[in-house]
Structures are given as structure tokens and as C-alpha cells.
């Protein structure tokens, strides 16, 4: 991943920062300039909770090249209490134990490695609650 793009995404990938519309309260990740619900342009920065519900998931057997060594892996869409849904890997769990509606928590993990010489990219994954 290009370092400049990676750095731009740090607020939401590292800290789960979201933008909450000051007018209607809709929450966005990543940030937006205009609220698609009410058209307002002013937002406050909030941090999402670290507990989520698994909405749906799939098992990836044929991944993109940078994730080849991790396959097969589970990819889930999870809903945060703030109403936002995010997609990330679900790890540290047997596939047979995955259930839609189950509680998961967010954990900071290495997402990808840019070959032997490039930067290491970090962000969030979902794991069972402990």
C-alpha cells in the first residue's frame, strides 16, 4: 500500500474514528464532507465502540495475492452500536463457530505486509469476546 494513502486512513483504521453529523446524528466511516441523509456539512469526531455484532460473513478461499498465505479466512460485516457497519477479517475462531448475530470485539492487528521491503499496514479485525 502506498504510504501516503495508508497514513490518511490511520484515524479510522487505527482508532475507529468516525464522523457524526452534527445535524441529524448519522455516523460515517470513513469521513464524509456532506451528510447523505440531511445534507449538513458539519461533523464531530467520535470513536466507535469496540464491541460489535456479526451481521454476515463468508469464507475466502481464493484471496487477493497479498492475503494468499492467510487463506482460507473469514470475512465479516459487523455492526457497531453507533449504527456503522464495517467489513474486516474475523480471526481466532473456528469457522464452525461463526454465527450471524454473535458478539465480537475489535482487535488491532497487522492487516498486510508490502513484500519484504514495504510498509506494514495495521488496522482492525474482529475476534471473539474475551
Amino acid at each position: 500500500m502506498f504510504p501516503a494513502r495508508y497514513a490518511r486512513e490511520m484515524p479510522h483504521r487505527y482508532r475507529l474514528e468516525a464522523h457524526k453529523c452534527k445535524q441529524c446524528g448519522k455516523v460515517f466511516v470513513p469521513r464524509r464532507e456532506i451528510c447523505d441523509k440531511c445534507g449538513a456539512t458539519e461533523f464531530e469526531v467520535i470513536r466507535l465502540s469496540d464491541r460489535v455484532k456479526l451481521v454476515t460473513y463468508t469464507i475466502i478461499h481464493t484471496p487477493a495475492s497479498q492475503f494468499k498465505d492467510q487463506s482460507p479466512y473469514a470475512l465479516g460485516i459487523c455492526e457497531f452500536p453507533e449504527g456503522v457497519r464495517l467489513t474486516a477479517q474475523v480471526v481466532d475462531i473456528d469457522f464452525a463457530d461463526l454465527k450471524t448475530g454473535m458478539d465480537l470485539q475489535v482487535e488491532f492487528r497487522r492487516i498486510q505486509t508490502d513484500g519484504h521491503e514495504g510498509i506494514l499496514s495495521y488496522g482492525y479485525k474482529f475476534v471473539p469476546v474475551i
Binding site: 492467510q70 477479517q89 481466532d92 488491532f108 492487528r109 497487522r110 495495521y122 479485525k125
Partner: peptide
């Protein structure tokens, strides 16, 4: 696992 290191 591979996605865990000293930073995480």
C-alpha cells in the same frame, strides 16, 4: 499468528 506482532 501472522497478524500479531509486538506492535499489535
Amino acid at each position: 499468528p501472522p497478524d500479531v506482532d509486538t506492535i499489535t
